[in-house]
């Protein structure tokens, strides 16, 4: 990021990335539900219809499968569509297009054609939207070879990862967090890309490695503050992309701290935390002084009631407890 960079919200950072890339490359167009006249359910596309017109900022009917597939076809023809699925919850309707078409077309046809598209969608819980509107499905997308999966936690990464995604020749799933759109921070300029597969250390520490992404980075950092008051210094690492995963950086940290906690807003079974922990066991088994701990959302459909919802989502206290467990210490009261 440049030294004189302005402080903007995560939402505005995404908007800047879209606008800059649309100016840079005429083959970039946006498509999704209510992204034009309504300017997006989360206002990420604010002002873009007015600037670029209806051919490049396209409001669709409520047909996630068809307009996602349309984006894939347009990408096969050499355009660079950025498809907005209003929330990750609705991506399930388009899953056949994403998994059976987007991820496979380059390989299945012997590399004759690529699919340079971005599918943006926010996810996560915390707004009492209950079972069908609170998914974190990062693991489902990360499971699929052929996709790339980016999970920005800051405005700077939101802008830089989206710009990289638009310029990438493969289908990229950009998972935004509904809870971060208002988060402020500095951002880079027009040519500041965040490369895929490069984790970043959010806070250095020596006692335990805490791996977290997207909104969970902020949960982990809050936990790190609390732990510091107990004399425990954790190293918080944000992978930024799950596919590719920067295992070198993650494993390098774990070999130094000998302990690891993986924080993941998704469910525990076959999830991101499970997958990352498996990699770390394979890469760092001889260095580990304690079992790797996972912090996940509860293994339940997300409940509506506020107290139940908060109990289901990872909280700083859950991360503190997990770190303390790797240190074989009681959580102080």
């Amino acid at each position: 990021m440049s030294a004189d960079s302005a402080t903007v919200t995560y939402r505005e950072a995404l908007n800047q990335a879209l606008r800059e890339e649309m100016i840079r490359d005429e083959s970039v167009f946006l498509m999704g539900e209510d992204i034009g006249h309504f300017e997006g359910a989360f206002k990420v596309t604010k002002g873009l219809l007015a600037e670029f017109g209806e051919e490049r900022v396209v409001d669709t009917p409520i047909t996630e499968a068809a307009f996602t597939g349309l984006g894939i076809g347009a990408a096969m023809a050499g355009l660079r569509p950025v498809i907005e699925i209003m929330t990750v919850n609705f991506a399930l309707v388009a899953m056949d297009q994403i998994v059976s078409n987007a991820s496979k077309i380059h390989y299945m046809f012997g590399g004759q054609v690529s699919v340079p598209m971005v599918i943006r969608m926010p996810g996560g819980a915390g707004h009492q939207l209950s079972a069908q509107h609170s998914h974190s499905l990062d693991a489902m997308f990360t499971h699929v070879p052929g996709l790339k999966v980016a999970v920005p936690a800051t405005p700077d990464d939101a802008k830089g990862l989206l710009k990289s995604a638009i310029r990438d020749d493969d289908p990229v799933i950009l998972l935004e967090s509904e809870g971060l759109y208002g988060k402020k921070g500095p951002v880079g300029g027009e040519d500041d890309l965040v490369p895929f597969g490069q984790a970043v250390v959010r806070r250095p520490g020596r006692d335990c490695t805490v791996i977290a992404s997207s909104r969970m980075v902020w949960v982990a950092l809050a936990a790190a503050e609390q732990l510091a008051t107990q004399g425990v210094e954790v190293e918080v690492i944000d992978p930024r992309t799950f596919r590719p995963l920067d295992l070198d950086t993650l494993a390098g940290s774990v070999r130094r701290t000998s302990r690891a906690v993986v924080v993941d807003e998704g469910w525990p079974e076959c999830g991101i935390a499970a997958g990352v922990a498996a990699h770390l066991y394979e890469a760092c088994f001889d260095w580990l002084d304690a079992p790797i701990a996972r912090v996940n959302s509860a293994d339940v459909p997300m409940p509506y009631a506020k107290n139940l919802e908060q109990a289901a989502i990872p909280q700083p206290a859950d991360v503190v407890a997990a770190v303390m467990s790797t240190l074989a210490r009681e959580v102080p009261r």
């Binding site: 597939g69 984006g71 894939i72 076809g73 347009a74 059976s100 078409n101």
Partner: peptide, 25 residues
């Protein structure tokens, strides 16, 4: 020839995109 696809109906949205791209260009 943009391909043969194995999911019944699954290629029709791709064709929509190829038509979209023709008009876009």
């Amino acid at each position: 020839f943009y391909g043969g696809y194995g999911i019944v109906g699954g290629a029709v949205p791709l064709a929509l995109g190829l038509g979209w791209a023709a008009r876009y260009r």
